[in-house]
Amino acid sequence: MSQFRKEKNRFIFLMLMPATILLVGLTLFPFIVSFILSFTDYSLLRPGQTKFIFLNNYIELMTTDEFWIALRVTLVFTILAVFIQVVLGVTFATLLHNENTNVSLLRTLYLLPLAITPIAATFTFRLMFNPSLGVLNYFMKLLGLEPQAWLASPNTALFSLILVDTWQWTPFILLICLGGLASLPNEPFEAAKVDGASSWQIFTKITVPMLYPFIGLALLFRSIDAFKTFDIIYVLTSGGPGILTRTLNLYAFKHGIEYLSMGYAGSIAIVMLIITIVVAQIFLRKNKLLQPKDTLK
């Protein structure tokens, strides 16, 4: 190997070193600890009495109704929230892809929810959802509709959480799609117009397919994030009514932090991680999103 190549490799190695150390320290190490703990009955309540119990935590998890209910709630929340956000995000991005002064102001306004501290926004929503003092029921009454127990009713609690998540994260999809639209070539659109295509045809046959790699990545990021949503649900419903809005993350929190059963909580976290990795890999491979462009057919 030439001297130049050796020095280049050393340079790359040194440049990657800080990020690698951080990654190992902050991500890999806690993951390994969680993974090991998930095979034990480690509890902060029984210091020094931890036993290796092999797959018992996982068996217990798979045979508990609460786990399956939490998984179902998590999937419903993730799928519905991300679907609505992608539809709205792509639609708004298309409408806002316009070099007009008013539009650029609107663009800024639409992106504001991303800049607001999530927990502050969530507490504001808690006030807005308040059945007696909240603004939502005020408008319901103005419209002659029955006020709702937004967060306490089995019919509306999950919908309310999805609403808050959508308000907060649609701008993320919007931002990625706007960036995608800006990078698309003009020629196909101009050619379509010359051929007499309608706006709807241009949107469905040209814009969406060309934007697909961007939509796909946004969808993937958002799905992973929505799958582990915690703050919104914890503050607004704590998983209620009953356990109808308790997601896997909340379920892990209950066992880890409230019951201090770190081994069991670790197994929930590992199952979540496996689900995330498997789904993400299938999605990426099927859609070839991360492959170099020249391999796309």
Binding site: F129, N130, P131, S132, L133, N137, P147, Q148, A149, W150, L151, A152, S153, L236, T237, G240, P241
Partner: peptide, 21 residues
């Protein structure tokens, strides 16, 4: 009880009482 009492902790109970609702 009030509408949405299923989401009431002590804070909401005290607040409703003090606001005379």
């Amino acid at each position: 009880g009030p509408l949405g009492v299923g989401n009431y902790h002590w804070y909401e109970c005290l607040n409703d009482y003090m606001q005379e609702v």
